[in-house]
Design a protein around this nucleic acid. Structure first.
Lengths: 125, 125
DNA sequence: CAGCATCCCTTAAGATACTG
DNA sequence: CAGTATCTTAAGGGATGCTG
């Protein structure tokens, strides 16, 4: 699985993997996309709900990022036939394939917080 | 593991997970950090080598991002005692804990490319 | 409510030149 | 080689007001 370590840096396998990461980043690029997808991974949300879940995002950015995610086929957009219209967003089947990445980020984030906490403890002794 | 679906959006568990993702993004934020870490996941690299591996990055950005990654304890920097000095960067033990995230991104990127390819095939029929 | 248009300011980031 | 400093441009992104 792992290469011979050291000096395989420029090998074809590595380059291919780096390209794969770059492809992923191209789709998930931007400050908010991953946060949006994470929020939607817990269920469908309306525009305003999303804005509340994704802390700090403005309507303009949210709108823009959602459009890009929709174009890439990661989320679906459904306009509800309600009085003041509402729009629901949810992960598409394809978008759900990002769940593994999200999960790893959740895990890492939780551990990271633990680590920071421990560091503070050590310093205060 | 998964919540009751629908309407748990604002539940405490979800919020905590979203915060974890956000924590991760805070550390990996910026256009280049993940790409840099991916490159380093295949072994130590010198400044110039990194710049070559991370397609499109300029010296200024690379320098800045490396400093931030070092501050966060994800990479280590070693100045070699060579004639024209060289500096080697490598993932720290802690930085290597990001491997899971990177791997998932590699997997997704590879599948994504496949998917795009298939779409082209379908369109050309 | 969703979301576009406009205005405006701040940050990101490229290019170039320079130093130990 | 590994950066830093400076300048400049492009993009990011907030605030407000408006429409279906």
């Amino acid at each position: 699985m792992m290469e011979t370590r050291e000096k395989t840096l420029t090998s074809d396998t590595c380059k291919e993997k780096l390209r794969a990461v770059q492809d992923t980043l191209d789709v998930l690029g931007g400050k908010w996309k991953i946060a949006i997808i994470s929020a939607l991974s817990f269920g469908k949300l309306r525009f305003m709900e999303l804005q509340r879940e994704v802390e700090g995002i403005g309507a303009k950015m949210l709108s823009k990022e959602l459009r890009e995610l929709e174009i890439n086929g990661l989320i679906s957009r459904h306009v509800c036939n309600t009085k003041p219209i509402t729009v629901e967003y949810e992960l598409s089947v394809y978008g759900k394939t990002l769940q593994n990445i999200i999960n790893e980020m959740i895990n890492w984030g939780i551990n990271h917080r633990e680590r920071i906490k421990e560091q503070c403890h050590e310093q205060s002794t």
